[in-house]
Design a protein around this nucleic acid. Structure first.
Lengths: 221, 221
DNA sequence: GTCTATATCACGATAGAC
DNA sequence: GTCTATCGTGATATAGAC
């Protein structure tokens, strides 16, 4: 019962795809079911056949985006590398995930606010969303604590570092026009994505303060 | 300024105050004029007497929030201190501003997306908003570049550092329930605010990597 | 599974009395 | 400046034919 219609995803997937883009652009309240239906090439009532309510559709979109990101980040953490190298991989994976699905950063930031409008525990899709978030935070938190114990990272508040890492990545890719004005170019070009990774990793490794000449490892691309 | 009836701000200020809280919680599309009016103790038509349209009200709320923040940050940059100390003050001021007005972080993040729904240049309030943002970004950018020239900061991409600073602050205070779960306590208590300032400044100064006291062997800790 | 209605309600905005 | 009443539109969601 839990996976009805999972095999025939032709309409369902199309709906999730167009809804993701629309919700990212104008948010939960700003997108009507009629608009989603038309963008998916369906009548409004057909859309209600696939998703019983607007909330359910929204949560399903969220879960799909979070699932993609969580899988990538989990893979980045699965290697046997040293903590600092793992954090670099995690950063690369997060930036890649956000950049490859341009809607995701905005969708997730919006979700931060909008899921307070309804109770996520009321819907099965909402519980899946909560689990994905928990998995994501637990993964990076575990890495940071391992790294501190091993002496690779300085002693800091793990939750605060997590907040800083996520904020630095997600805000950047959600900043849209404002960010592009600041950068003087696109946010999502291959070059801009490469630069963002390098700048973030340099920040994590060195902070901002100038330092006397010191040995460093290189960065990837 | 060019405002009519600015002397009697009793209704107008009340409207802006309640609208700020509502827009922060549910966004532009999610809050109706009727709800704003009732929260301000007015009828809907009376609200339309003070603000000719919903867009105008929204932009006025935004401008007020940005104005408060821009003034604080400007003051932090006005001192004659060294760049690193100025950046610390700027960080303190940004964190204080976001923490003292709990709605502001969410409101500003939402505005990142939502002002693409209408043309800010079409309304005088929108132009004021754009000017505030420009002033804010120019201020911190100037400080960073001065600091790099003076050798206080390492050479980095100024716009990327700006994105990281803003993202680290604004995401944290907009993260709401999720952030409080992660922190295991409130985001806005005096202690939590103090901690956030310290963690952010430590990150800017040192990054995350442990700094070897003598050599890079990684055996300390 | 998709469709054409339709029910019910809230939206932004306006008119005009007081 | 605040109110009641209303216009026109579009929202979520349902009923039921095919």
């Amino acid at each position: 019962m839990a996976d009805i219609g999972a095999r025939d995803g032709s309409s369902r997937d199309k709906i999730l795809e167009v809804a993701e883009a629309l919700y990212a652009r104008r948010g939960f309240a700003g997108v009507g079911m009629r608009e989603v239906a038309e963008a998916a090439g369906l009548g409004k009532s057909s859309l209600f056949h696939h998703f019983r309510s607007k909330v359910q559709l929204y949560l399903a979109v969220l879960e799909r985006v979070l699932g993609r990101i969580d899988e990538r980040l989990g893979a980045a953490l699965a290697s046997g590398d040293a903590p600092a190298a793992k954090l670099d991989r995690w950063t690369d994976a997060l930036v890649d995930a956000l950049a490859e699905q341009p809607a995701s950063a905005r969708l997730l930031l919006r979700a931060l606010f909008e899921d307070e409008q309804f109770d996520t525990e009321e819907w099965p899709e909402g519980q899946a969303v909560d689990q994905r978030v928990e998995s994501l935070l637990a993964g990076i938190s575990r890495l940071l604590e391992e790294g501190m114990r091993a002496g690779a990272f300085r002693r800091a508040s793990t939750p605060h570092v997590v907040q800083t890492l996520i904020g630095a990545a997600i805000y950047h890719f959600a900043s849209g026009e404002l960010g592009e004005t600041l950068l003087g170019g696109p946010l999502l070009s291959a070059e801009a994505v490469r630069t963002r990774k390098a700048e973030m990793k340099a920040f994590f490794h060195e902070g901002l303060a100038a330092r006397p000449a010191q040995s460093r490892s290189g960065d990837d691309g």
